[in-house]
Amino acid sequence: MPAKKDGDDRPADELNIHMVDTRTLRALAHPLRLRLLNALREFGPATASGLADRLGESSGATSYHLRQLASNGFVEDDPERGKGRERWWRAVHAGTAFNTGLFVNHPDPDVRGAVGVVLHEIADNHAQELSTWLGTMHEWPEEWHRAWEASDFKLRLTPDLSAELITKMHELIESYRDRVPEGTEGAVTVRSHLHLFPRPTD
């Protein structure tokens, strides 16, 4: 779930990012809806039955939750692909972002619960993606065996320095975007996960 970075002065619509409010946060706070949205963003437009096959769900469930996502502006019809009664869906935005500080301490417990669902689903998705890579690494060309990373670091930082580090890491990653044209031999989509959080010292 890409996020609009602090300090990035470009408006969310220019970045094609959906800025979540309390209403749309509640609509998003469902594991299957998050998986549907991620699948449409990563693999492109699809039908409810196609998404059901990809995610191992019933087409009735995917159809219902796609309609809920559509009513809150996350997905929309893709009329150029629809044939007859076949309904195709596409993601409206490239990513979703919200200021966790506004929601984690929100006075409404339903809002706090919703943000917990979203954040835990993101963490679960990251873990699943890494596990899938580890389990299928042998299927990839040898060059990729030397070009992946899973590291952790321990630093002593203030909140301001932590925020500064996050911004710099985002900027570094963004500097590689669009450097490789479509169709370049040997190029694939690469996933990067960024986790930075405080730990107790004792």
Rank of each mutant, 00 (worst) to 15 (best):
G56S: 09
G56I: 09
E57K: 11
E57C: 11
E57G: 03
E57I: 04
S58M: 06
S58K: 11
S58L: 12
S58G: 10
S59W: 03
G60M: 06
G60T: 14
G60Y: 09
A61W: 00
A61K: 02
S63G: 08
S63W: 03
Y64Q: 08
L66P: 03
L66F: 04
L66R: 02
R67A: 03
Q68A: 04
Q68S: 09
Q68G: 04
L69V: 12
L69C: 05
A70D: 13
A70W: 15
N72G: 07
N72T: 15
F74C: 01
V75L: 02
V75Q: 01
V75A: 02
E76M: 09
E76C: 12
D77H: 09
D77W: 04
D77E: 14
D77F: 10
D77Y: 07
D78M: 14
P79Q: 11
P79W: 07
E80Q: 15
R81W: 03
G82T: 01
G82L: 00
G82E: 01
K83P: 02
K83M: 09
K83L: 13
K83E: 14
G84R: 08
G84H: 13
R85F: 11
R85E: 05
R85T: 15
R85Y: 12
E86H: 06
E86R: 06
E86C: 10
W88N: 15
R90I: 10
H93G: 14
H93D: 12
A94W: 08
G95P: 03
G95Q: 04
G95W: 03
T96H: 04
A97K: 03
A97N: 09
A97T: 15
F98P: 00
F98A: 03
N99F: 10
N99Q: 13
G101A: 05
G101I: 01
G101F: 01
G101C: 02
G101W: 00
L102D: 15
F103Q: 02
F103W: 08
V104Q: 14
V104K: 15
V104Y: 08
V104T: 13
V104M: 10
V104L: 07
V104A: 11
N105W: 09
N105I: 05
N105R: 06
H106K: 05
P107N: 12
D108V: 06
P109Y: 07
D110V: 13
D110K: 11
D110M: 13
V111N: 02
V111L: 02
V111P: 00
R112L: 00
G113A: 04
G113T: 02
G113P: 02
A114N: 14
V115F: 02
V117K: 06
V118Y: 00
H120F: 14
E121D: 10
E121C: 10
I122S: 12
I122L: 05
I122K: 04
A123W: 02
A123M: 07
A123N: 07
D124V: 05
N125Y: 15
N125P: 08
N125I: 07
N125K: 14
H126C: 08
A127P: 08
A127N: 14
Q128C: 08
E129Q: 12
E129G: 09
E129D: 12
E129S: 15
E129C: 14
S131V: 07
T132Q: 13
W133H: 06
L134P: 08
G135I: 03
G135R: 05
G135D: 07
T136V: 10
T136R: 12
T136I: 13
